[in-house]
Design a binder for these strands. Structure first.
Lengths: 170, 170
DNA sequence: AGGCTGTTGTGATACTATAACAAAAGGGGG
DNA sequence: CCCCCTTTTGTTATAGTATCACAACAGCCT
């Protein structure tokens, strides 16, 4: 992150999540990257998995597993929770989606494939979720943990607040 | 945090959560602090609330609301979920307990009353949860958010990993 | 064809959380 | 002391989130 990369609209401009923008670019870019990534790892982008990712990519909001499940069911896929959870878990493991624990929901990763330890910014007004560059945040966390001998293996960093646009309108 | 305060065992020694120690001190200290805090705010430490806090203080682990509810019910309190959730929500609002979202569980605050924006360190081996000094972590998060115009109003910072003791034994 | 692996589908169930309302407890003011 | 008001507790019911276990199916390799 912080590197300019014209092929990754969300990458160096997380504020896009909160503003009107050509979201088609986000979608097609993230989807294409995901396909490449899975292929490189010898894993399959199956119809369910692709569809779940597409649904998540429709907006910069997080969606509950059951919202996604309803969409899948309406399109002829299975209608039981494991159908959605399996795809979501798979996408998360592969770094193509993120779980937002504060919302019990999931969102698409907007720049998959790049090493990133994102911090999530959740706007309480428009519900959009952005991934912010969190290298420094994670660094601080690992330092704080290191002081007491704790080894960090994974972390969730989520901030609830208000984005620039919504604050302007209030 | 970082200030020496002999009356607060957990305060400047979060690693205690992961080590054998005189936990009676943690309990009595945090409970006493809680009582004082509520009194100062004109709020009541009722039997249910006190009991819930005591139960949480029994260990440095996080407990699910239903585990606590079972304990309450066995002791003659109400047996329905709201009984536990109300007390837990109250304690959390007052800064006497914390919700660990990663675990869908709650733990006692080990140094209530002090302004703190804790980061939680969750050991995957012994399940203990420690609060680490997170001023710098939060600072970094606010900086990262500020770069995209986002105002942070609250945050969860949780790290999953392994504490020094458990790593030593492995 | 047969067997292997990974994926999807299904039913059942466990776990987490909240809404809505009734009952009871405690604290002034009359 | 009693009434009224506010807060807290208790209960029923229900909503929302997540996992287990097993059957069916598809692709692939021999």
């Amino acid at each position: 992150m912080g590197q300019m990369d014209p092929s990754c609209p969300g990458c160096d401009a997380p504020q896009l999540a909160f503003a009107r923008h050509d979201h088609g670019l986000c979608q097609s870019d993230a989807l294409a990257r995901g396909e490449v990534l899975l292929a490189a790892r010898g894993l399959k982008m199956t119809p369910v998995r692709r569809r779940v990712l597409e649904i998540l990519l429709e907006s910069h909001r997080a969606m509950g597993a059951y919202d996604i499940l309803a969409r899948l069911a309406a399109e002829g896929f299975g209608s039981q929770p494991p159908v959605a959870y399996r795809a979501l878990d798979f996408l998360e493991e592969q770094g193509l989606a993120h779980r937002i624990r504060r919302l019990n929901a999931f969102c698409a990763c907007m720049h998959p494939g790049e090493a990133h330890a994102p911090a999530f910014l959740i706007c309480r007004s428009c519900d959009a979720v952005a991934e912010a560059a969190a290298g420094s945040v994670r660094g601080a966390l690992e330092t704080a943990a290191g002081l007491v001998g704790f080894t960090v293996e994974g972390s969730n960093i989520e901030a609830l607040g208000q984005c620039a646009d919504c604050r302007g309108q209030a």
